[in-house]
Design a protein around this nucleic acid. Structure first.
Length: 280
DNA sequence: CTTGTGCCCTGACCGC
DNA sequence: TGCGGTCAGGGCACAA
């Protein structure tokens, strides 16, 4: 469910709630959410550790636990919410971290696709998917020049949407924001990456930054299940340019927004504003 | 190298 | 109400 802006919103919330707090205990109600190591070791290592910092890499949350890193992948429906221990436990609660002072961090995940990892700090890159992630689109290293270099590394058949969705290329874009980025850049999802002009690469670059930053400013998009670490919905759904707007008029030109399958996912775009032909 | 498919799950929604 | 089909912010393995 959550893409970069949602995960970043959760990260900021958690950083405020959890930094410096001790994990007194962890309990699992669905141990298979633990991808590494086994739940027993996970619990043993967690107990008594201080949460030094909450970081984000792509769509993954990383909790620095002094020599150890806990990694959380929320996938489609995962949620991390901090609340008081006595608050009713929502359905699909799979893990609870006890923080003392009657506060808890709860991991709930309706579809159970989400995963937890706990590794010694230096092993994160090999024991979790984090090591395979591409560039962070909101960090300094992401520049027009960097994007142009990445373009040259793409194969001749690579289509824009599948390229942007590829976490090994850019970390953090998912199905909503790739569509939003492509609309903003005026580019068709099936455009071949190798055929993008210098100007189009620049346009794409600025669209990625703009769309992600705006969504973070709105605390993420709640189309379905997404909530922040306080359990509240985001605000960006009312600002979406094309995603989930099939048949509704394009906000720029009025043409009905079209939906089609691309790279295996529902893709929303404006057939007028995002043409496949080379623009002149 | 690239795309497409199926799969992991549960629940919401739609048409009949 | 019920039932079956389709769809869902992700990502992985596998086939063509």
């Amino acid at each position: 469910m959550p893409e970069l802006p949602e995960v970043e919103t959760i990260r900021r919330d958690l950083q405020g709630f959890l930094r410096g707090r001790e994990i007194t205990d962890v309990v699992f109600f669905h141990p298979e959410v633990v991808a590494w190591p086994d739940p027993g070791t996970f619990q043993e290592v967690c107990r008594g550790r201080i949460i030094k910092e909450v970081r984000r890499r792509g769509k993954y949350l990383l909790f620095a636990l002094g020599g150890w890193q806990m990694v959380v992948s929320l996938r489609m429906t995962g949620q991390l919410v901090v609340c008081r221990e006595e608050e009713p436990r929502p359905p699909h609660t799979h893990t609870i971290w006890y923080l003392g002072n009657r506060q808890v961090l709860r991991f709930t995940d309706q579809r159970r696709f989400g995963r937890l990892y706990l590794t010694p700090e230096p092993d994160v890159a090999v024991l979790t998917p984090v090591g395979r992630l591409g560039i962070e689109p909101l960090e300094e290293g992401f520049t027009v020049k960097a994007l142009a270099t990445m373009q040259r590394a793409a194969g001749p058949a690579r289509r824009l949407k599948s390229w942007l969705l590829d976490q090994k290329v850019i970390a953090g874009l998912g199905n909503i924001y790739t569509d939003e980025v492509l609309f903003t850049a005026g580019l068709h999802p099936l455009h071949r990456v190798a055929e993008l002009s210098e100007q189009e690469i620049e346009q794409l670059y600025h669209s990625i930054r703009e769309v992600l930053q705006e969504a973070i400013d709105h605390r993420g998009t709640s189309v379905r299940n997404y909530v922040d670490a306080s359990g509240r919905a985001g605000l960006h759904q009312q600002y979406l340019r094309v995603y989930s707007r099939e048949g509704l008029p394009c906000r720029r030109c009025g043409t009905p927004v079209r939906r089609q399958k691309t790279a295996g996912r529902s893709t929303y775009f404006c057939p007028t504003c995002q043409k496949l032909e080379v623009k002149r």
